[in-house]
């Protein structure tokens, strides 16, 4: 078995095992750590596919930002880290059926399809070609994505800002009458 195959199977095993733990782990923080492992494995797959720039971007964005966001969300909603809470709903058999069925269909059609494999060489260099493509052929999508990111940024700030939760005004100096307390409660 050559090095590429060995690396592929090792990475595939890592990704699939980590992914299974992500969806089944009882502790949501463990899920997050396994998610990071799976995403790191995917970066390894990108390296195998001769896309080193994407691999670095994957680690930088997913591990450095998205997973971190997830962990922050887990911490801020602390109660869900309790292991006593049931972590799956009643749809486990249905979910298993659906996902396995989907897998069977996809894999069957994959192995049946003759793909037009091309043996052209990949362009040299890390991000040069990618950068040129982004600023020429894909300039419009690139701009749209940047606007989307800006929108997401502002939207997230607006949604998650503490003030957006309507609060009762600060307690007045004099105690409220009984009726008002009832409304506030």
């Amino acid at each position: 078995m050559d090095t590429i195959s060995l690396a592929f199977y090792a990475l595939a095993f890592l990704i699939i095992a980590a992914a299974i733990f992500v969806v089944t782990s009882k502790n949501i923080f463990h899920s997050a750590i396994y998610l990071i492992l799976a995403l790191f494995g995917v970066a390894g797959i990108y390296v195998l596919l001769q896309a080193p720039f994407l691999a670095a971007a994957q680690v930088l964005i997913y591990v450095g930002a998205v997973s971190m966001l997830m962990i922050f969300a887990i911490m801020l909603t602390a109660r869900i880290a309790d292991q006593t809470i049931r972590h799956t709903n009643e749809q486990v058999p249905t979910g298993l059926l659906v996902s396995l069925g989907l897998l069977a269909v996809i894999v069957y059609s994959l192995w049946q399809t003759p793909f037009a494999i091309s043996s052209d060489p990949m362009p040299e260099g890390a991000g040069g070609t990618l950068g040129k493509l982004l600023l020429t052929q894909f300039a419009l999508p690139f701009e749209i994505v940047s606007v989307l990111l800006l929108g997401a940024l502002i939207g997230a700030v607006v949604i998650a800002k503490k003030d957006s939760v309507r609060r009762e005004p600060e307690a007045p100096m004099t105690p409220l009458p009984k009726s008002a307390e009832k409304v506030a409660g």
Partner: peptide, 19 residues
């Protein structure tokens, strides 16, 4: 495909929104 289906399974069965 395998990873995608694991994702589908998780999306259908997780109770917790972050999951």
């Amino acid at each position: 495909a395998v990873v995608f289906c694991i994702g589908v399974f998780g999306m259908l069965t997780r109770r917790n929104a972050v999951g």
